[in-house]
Simulated assay, not measured.
Amino acid sequence: MTVSAEFIPSGFRAPEGVRIYAIGDIHGCNDLLRDRLAAIEADLAARPGVEALRIFIGDYIDRGPDSRGVVETLIELGNRERCVFLCGNHEVLLLDFPQNPKLMPAWRSVGGLDTLASYGIASSPEPDPAEALQLANTFERVLPGSHRDFYCNLAISHAAGDLYFVHAGVRPGVALEAQSVADRTWIRHEFLNHEGLFEKLIIHGHTPATEPEIRPNRINIDTRAFSSGRLTCIWLEGDRFGFI
């Protein structure tokens, strides 16, 4: 079901002839992801005649029960539809972990053990350094090649018309083309507290909110799916946007 359309803030526009669907932080909730994908298909059937672009804002893994299933769903979708998959800070941790097992306490604290479990890797509640090394080696061995390719090929950001899609946000005062990878995947307060306009409207996740946050300079679509049961999907077309 499509919520009534509103004007995109500050006069920004999506590219002509394209309806963009952007989905917020999924965090291992494959059931919610499949539900949102079905809702997109229903919306396209009800409002046909445009090219659809599906953008995923990052943080596909950790905390929820089926990180592996989420990645399988996205790989299959990407093989048949036009999609952009962005990198979140949780994927940064996953990619770094096999080469740096010392990251285990940081990754564990944000749900990394749930991701390992989804790949069939059991662990103690608080792995010590020796177990962390073993887990890193096991994960490197059992990670399917298609999943490795998915994680390694994630985009850091995506610009479309007057819209800029990124996981965490951008640093004020720095041109979009000069933003660092670290800021685009990790930044919070400097970005969230900035009230001025950026070069484009920033569509992001990373910082969970009870409802999508709509500001003149940004829209936050992370609604904590793993605990709220609400995975947000925004559509943007021309000068309008809404939620499904």
Rank of each mutant, 00 (worst) to 15 (best):
M1F: 15
I8C: 08
A14W: 10
P15V: 03
R19G: 05
D25Q: 11
D25K: 07
H27Q: 14
G28R: 09
A39I: 00
E41I: 08
R47T: 09
G49H: 11
L53A: 03
I57C: 10
G58A: 10
D59T: 14
D66K: 02
L77V: 14
G78T: 12
E81R: 08
F85V: 13
G88F: 05
H90M: 06
F97E: 09
M104L: 00
P105V: 05
W107A: 02
R108V: 01
S109L: 12
G112W: 08
S118E: 13
G120R: 12
A130M: 04
A130L: 11
L135G: 06
R141T: 14
L143E: 01
L143N: 03
S146H: 07
Y151V: 14
Y151L: 15
Y151W: 12
A155D: 12
H158A: 01
A159F: 00
A160D: 11
G161V: 03
D162I: 05
L163V: 06
Y164L: 13
A168V: 05
R171I: 02
P172Y: 04
A175H: 11
L176W: 01
V181P: 00
I187G: 03
N193A: 15
E199C: 10
L201V: 01
L201I: 05
H206E: 04
T207I: 07
P208K: 12
A209V: 14
T210F: 07
T210I: 05
E211F: 07
I214P: 08
I214T: 13
I221C: 07
A225Q: 08
A225G: 04
S227G: 01
S228G: 04
D239W: 05
R240Y: 09
F243A: 10
I244M: 11
